[in-house]
Nucleic acid binder design. Structure first.
Lengths: 124, 124
DNA sequence: TGCATATTTCTACAATCCTAAAAGTGTCGA
DNA sequence: TCGACACTTTTAGGATTGTAGAAATATGCA
């Protein structure tokens, strides 16, 4: 994932309504959800949903397709995956051993295994 | 990590200068970096660095300590780790098998293994 | 076509970002 | 201790961007 896209994705996720919408869409799965339903479930006005969905689309996190009267929006899971990877790799600038805690979540990428010898845990 | 903190963290990372600063700090490691050095290396004015650092601190991603005349800033790796986890768990709303691709990065948390049977990859 | 539903554009307001200048804050030597 | 210096933060300003609700537009079915 390019830095440019990651910046847009972070911006998209930094807004409460958008985060809520994204979660709804994740739960909905590849099938997606109509804008009206999103508005209902998120407790937000339709125009507001439209605005935020557009932002999520611009960030590449959400895709849309028309189905009869409704437009169904769904998460681009590839993009979401890319963002996780960006955060772990690019953003952590190769210090993944420091960034990603090995306690519960053990990440088994070769690059990470190389750095996991120390078994370092993050300091709080 | 609480949603509130995650929102602040995403907002902090959604700005080019702040992302650059965070990367510098990650590379610098626990030792940290003085504000002046950050300004030089990031190619940003001192006041601007101060402004953005404060934002990173507010988001809980960066800590500071005084050392003689300088103030050294360092990444809170625990918080960064928490953000990665938030993105993978809370944000992905339990659909980790969909969100986190199993191709290169295999995540070996029990919760994830449970969901990895399908070996589903994201659709683009 | 005409109506009901679904979505987008418009508008006003608030928040963010950056530069330059001024004000702190702490350290060191006389 | 006091003043000078180095380093960082705060403030003020103006331009840009983000937000929410009102109004307008588009779509599909009878």
């Amino acid at each position: 994932m390019q830095e440019r896209q990651a910046l847009a994705a972070f911006a998209a996720l930094s807004q409460e309504t958008r985060l809520r919408i994204l979660r709804l869409l994740v739960v909905a799965g590849p099938e997606g959800l109509a804008a009206g339903l999103i508005a209902d479930q998120a407790g937000v006005s339709a125009s507001n949903v439209s605005f935020h969905i557009k932002e999520l689309e611009r960030a590449g996190l959400v895709a849309s397709r028309r189905e009869s009267r409704s437009i169904l929006y769904s998460v681009d899971f590839g993009a979401l995956n890319g963002l996780v990877r960006f955060l772990m790799e690019d953003c952590c600038a190769g210090q993944i051993g420091l960034c990603v805690d090995a306690e519960e979540t053990v990440v088994c990428d070769t690059r990470m295994i190389d750095q996991q010898g120390g078994g370092q845990t993050a300091e709080r």
